[in-house]
Design a protein around this nucleic acid. Structure first.
Lengths: 171, 171
DNA sequence: GATGAAAGCAGATCGCC
DNA sequence: GGCGATCTGCTTTCATC
């Protein structure tokens, strides 16, 4: 959701025009970033060189932003995942950006969302067990200045979609 | 968080032993799945063939589970992201799995978490604008049997960590 | 833009240590 | 388990349409 570029200016690039072939490539790569250009080309019915050129263009335009490997959490000793729903004091709400930056440096944090509504911050954490969760909450959140209240929700089950929907008219 | 294999049996594989070299490889690939074996080898101080063998082993052991490309949401017309915090009726709580399955088929859904606490389900959705959000909530959630209440939290800002922490003793 | 051919390079295997 | 050599096949470039 970041609107901002590193220099702090709004990103005023004109919306890059994608056609349905580009969208198909993005869909395939979101589901499996290890697909070869050759495999993608076969899937979409283009030559590998043409497919390669489209991928290169989308990378240059920062539409395609790299890829991340998925690792089995259990293999790393992660036995429990939770969402921390955090309320911040009025004062801290003025400096939420630096707060977000600090939070996301904690290794056990997967994401931190600044949101509207009952809570101010939703933080997804991964831990060994309930004891680790308690320690993490106390050490990094409960006692932190600016935090007025935390609600903990343990995640029983999670489902993910890796592919974003295409919500624009395409060229 | 899935404990289950496709056949419905518990996964009883012994915990695969990772050493710190394996952990370093996983860390690099989580941050950038497009790194070549050669680049990873240089980073961790091993020969490319040895590095390749370690990666192959972790893939075979299902510790390394593929990769997903990251796409600029704005390029697809996504202007707004939100969390839907959903309460389910007692009856529906007995069939949450099929509910989760259906929810995650909706293209605008990124993830759905079944959780403890005030809410039962946390659903991350991506939409064009507030009008789209309203329509999505009404069409797929508010009027759905089993849903008793929805709270909507708009995401102002999001930060992610792509690398999971190593929480096990390593060999 | 798309294409096929050519060049360069990475992935994968293997025998050896 | 790590290593270097080797082979194979993919990525990337480029001239042409």
């Amino acid at each position: 959701m970041s609107d901002e570029r590193p220099n702090g200016l709004r990103d005023n690039r004109l919306p890059a025009s994608l056609d349905r072939t580009d969208a198909a490539i993005l869909g395939l790569l979101q589901n499996n970033a290890r697909l070869s250009v050759k495999e993608i080309a076969a899937e979409i019915g283009l030559a590998p060189s043409s497919t390669h050129e489209r991928i290169r263009r989308m990378r240059d335009a920062d539409i395609l932003r790299g890829a991340h490997a998925e690792v089995d959490p259990k293999a790393l000793g992660i036995g429990l995942e939770a969402l921390l729903m955090i309320e911040l004091s009025k004062h801290r709400r003025s400096t939420v950006d630096s707060f977000l930056d600090e939070v996301v440096k904690v290794p056990e944090v997967r994401f931190a969302y600044l949101v509207t509504g009952r809570h101010d911050l939703i933080v997804h954490v991964v831990v060994r067990d309930t004891r680790h969760l308690k320690d993490l909450a106390l050490d990094h959140f409960t006692n932190r200045p600016g935090v007025t209240r935390i609600e903990t929700s343990i995640i029983f089950e999670a489902r993910h979609r890796h592919e974003l929907p295409l919500l624009r008219q395409i060229g």
